[in-house]
């Protein structure tokens, strides 16, 4: 008798548990499914395809008879005398643009425009966004003429006042031009993020600092910067990955030159080899191998940032209740 009663009670309980478990799985799957499909199709699958192509000799000439060549393309990259130079260029480009413009200048601009009357600050930020909405080709042509040799370049006309000998600045200082042209555009992203972060600092903190007699620099150093630490880390991480993959302004300004791959960065080199060849035969396989290495570099950089900057803490729930 007792046994029968127990059985009757357990069966419905197990049924509810199974349904609840299923619901626990289906609801998140329903909401995350589309995103998962998109990520798979547009992020994961291209990486797999890139790696597969990198193991072939695919080029324009061999497209109708593609052969598997194993790691030959990677060995060619390893042996090439251009590889280390291009890798070094990539670190120079990412490092300097990130430090001096995309984070450094962006922070300076955000601090300045939040410390002047709001009307002027907003107008200044709007003005600074203009290059970002200008077509890249127009922007690059402006820089080309801006830095052209005498009697054309405005830079020369200006510097002549100070007795500087005119020259083609694009050829004479290609890194300066490339980093500045990229940086002036790139700084606007950080500027917007930092401005909103500074604006979100409770004004009581800043007032308290004023009451305590803190100078402007001390307020920036001890109040503002610590409180916008996470946005800074986000911009550093995001812009690092963004710069690793970006090359459009370099392509338009110097095309990787002048001279011996002076400003050729990894992503531009992959583009040159995989998609652009002056005499028609582009090498998809070799270019894909270069791109695959860039993916690996990007993943390593991401892991480092996630670990070093402890991103999991940033996205964790707050430990105290904030009213």
């Amino acid at each position: 008798m007792t046994q029968q009663t127990v059985t009757a009670q357990v069966t419905p309980h197990m049924d509810v548990s199974w349904r609840a478990r299923l619901r626990r799985f289906t609801t998140p799957a329903f909401f995350t499914g589309p995103a998962f499909v998109l990520v798979f199709l547009f992020f994961f699958l291209p990486v797999i395809l890139t790696i597969l192509i990198s193991l072939t000799d695919m080029s324009v000439a061999t497209i109708s008879d593609i052969k598997f060549v194993g790691l030959k393309n990677y060995i060619r990259i390893w042996r090439s005398r251009t590889t280390w130079k291009i890798l070094r260029n990539t670190f120079i480009y990412v490092g300097f643009t990130l430090t001096f413009f995309n984070v450094g200048l962006a922070l300076v601009l955000a601090l300045i425009t939040t410390h002047i009357p709001d009307r002027w600050g907003t107008a200044f930020r709007t003005f600074w966004l203009l290059p970002r909405i200008t077509p890249s080709v127009i922007y690059a042509i402006m820089w080309t003429w801006f830095t052209a040799d005498a009697p054309y370049g405005i830079v020369n006309q200006f510097l002549q006042i100070f007795g500087v000998e005119p020259r083609n600045w694009m050829s004479a200082q290609p890194w300066l031009v490339v980093i500045a042209a990229n940086g002036f555009v790139g700084a606007s992203f950080g500027m917007i993020i930092f401005t909103s972060a500074i604006r979100s600092i409770p004004v009581d903190f800043l007032r308290a600092a004023l009451v305590d007699g803190a100078s402007t620099w001390q307020r920036i150093r001890y109040v503002i910067l610590p409180m916008i630490r996470w946005p800074i880390l986000f911009v550093v991480s995001y812009q690092t990955l963004s710069l690793l993959a970006s090359f459009e302004y370099i392509l338009l300004l110097t095309d990787g030159g002048p001279g011996f791959y002076t400003t050729e960065v990894w992503s531009l080199h992959a583009y040159h080899r995989a998609l652009s060849n002056y005499f028609g035969n582009v090498q998809f396989g070799y270019g894909a191998a270069l791109a695959a290495i860039l993916v690996v570099i990007g993943v390593i950089a991401s892991v480092i940032y996630l670990r070093v900057f402890r991103f999991n803490e940033m996205v964790a729930e707050p430990k105290i209740e904030v009213i």
């Binding site: 000439a61 050829s171 001279g259 011996f260 791959y261 002076t262 035969n281």
Partner: peptide, 27 residues
């Protein structure tokens, strides 16, 4: 004439890289 060869693009890339490096004083 320049040659009709599927590998001319790569051949040209290497020669051009060397020439532009020499003219820039990089090599």
């Amino acid at each position: 004439f320049q040659p009709n060869s599927p590998d001319y693009g790569e051949y040209d890339r290497i020669l051009w890289t060397a020439l532009s490096a020499v003219m820039a004083g990089d090599m």
